[in-house]
Computed example of a mutant assay.
Amino acid sequence: MYATIGSDVPTGPGWTFEPKYDGMRALAFVTPTRVRLMTRNGKDKAAQFPEVVDALRALARKIKRSALLDGEVTALERNQPGHFQALQGRFHLKGAADIANAARESPAAMFVFDILADRGESLMSLPWTTRRGRLEALLRNAPPGIRVSESSPNGSRMIDRARKSGWEGVIAKRIAATYIPGARSRDWLKLKLQHRAEFVVGGFTEPRRTRQFLGAVLLGYFDSDGQLRYVGHTGGGFDRESLRETYERLKPLEQPHSPFAETPRTNERAHWVKPEVVVEVKFAELTSDNKLRQPIFLGIRDDKNASDVHLERESIQRMAKGRAEVPNARVASPTRGEAKKPRARRQRVGRP
């Protein structure tokens, strides 16, 4: 179940608010003998996050039964949820020594926000309030690598915390909602304070001067007709390792023709690629002709399919600089804690 972009903060009773964690969404299939960490595009990342798997396995031994949990695997920074950049370097590791070293240097935890099955019994037809109660009971005194996500009926307070703490945003959920697997529902609203989104890489340019591997990546999204629409380019946000990793992912996908519906012009030679790699980008704004202003590369999203990348509408970014004035209504819940725009002309692009 996925959240829909919300342009306003819901008010009145019947909603709860949770942090929008900056990590890898995963379903944890937990039994006393096996643990799987499945991403939304069907990849098992259990091998890449052994400390999370160990914690889930310890949980299964403690409860002596199976469970299906929904949550976010997130890097820990000072024992708190960290940033995606600290996590994404672990997605592609395969060697046991490299994985173990990454687990020591950049440990992760799973922040669980839902339970979908318990002892083989599906809980998805139950309302969120009931599932939340079952989740908190199950994870009481859970191993340190497993944490229950915060959830609070006070939307104004949660959004203020998100703004002050530099979170990407908040997720609002109807407390009466059932869980619909694979669906994008308006019972869950993604309230974004930052301009961050995933885009598909359709090409890259030659580097200039002493820069290695590539100059800029050429970005796009799929429209309702399945056409890849160009939104801009970025060469900012990379370090040497991410340049190398991105180049190694893109080079085997090279093709002679542009995948974009309208081919952008570039200052440096362009290398076109099959539109399969998804990256996350932070930017200042989206212009009226759907182009990114000041985009910065954050990382490769190995957990998302390119075909799922579409242009998101504006959310609540207008609240990012001031106090969130949201009428608040507390609700009874078992939670704990705070807890066709004009077509753009062809543009000349290149590495910044």
Rank of each mutant, 00 (worst) to 15 (best):
T287M: 08
A339F: 05
N290C: 13
E314V: 09
K291W: 07
L311T: 02
E312G: 13
F297P: 08
A332M: 11
R343Y: 06
Q317V: 14
L311H: 06
K341G: 13
N328A: 15
E285A: 14
D289L: 03
N305V: 00
R330V: 07
K282E: 14
A261F: 12
V277P: 08
A306Y: 04
P295C: 05
P275D: 05
A324Y: 00
V281W: 09
H271K: 05
L311F: 10
E338Y: 01
I316T: 00
T287N: 11
K304Q: 10
F297M: 02
V281E: 00
Q317I: 09
M319G: 07
L286G: 01
R323M: 09
A329H: 13
S333I: 00
R313S: 14
K282D: 10
A320N: 13
T287A: 07
N290K: 12
A270W: 04
E280L: 07
E338N: 10
A306C: 04
P259Y: 01
V326N: 05
E325P: 05
A324V: 02
R269Y: 08
W272C: 03
H271E: 02
T335A: 05
S315C: 00
A324L: 04
K321Q: 14
S307Y: 00
N267C: 12
S333R: 03
V331F: 08
T287H: 09
P295G: 01
V279N: 06
D303Y: 05
E268N: 12
V279F: 05
Q294R: 13
L298N: 15
K321E: 15
E280M: 08
V281D: 02
Q294A: 14
A329K: 12
K274P: 09
I316C: 11
K304G: 03
V277W: 05
N267T: 15
V281P: 11
A320Q: 13
K274S: 15
R330M: 13
P264E: 01
A261Q: 11
P334I: 02
R343K: 14
R265C: 11
V326K: 04
K291T: 15
E314H: 14
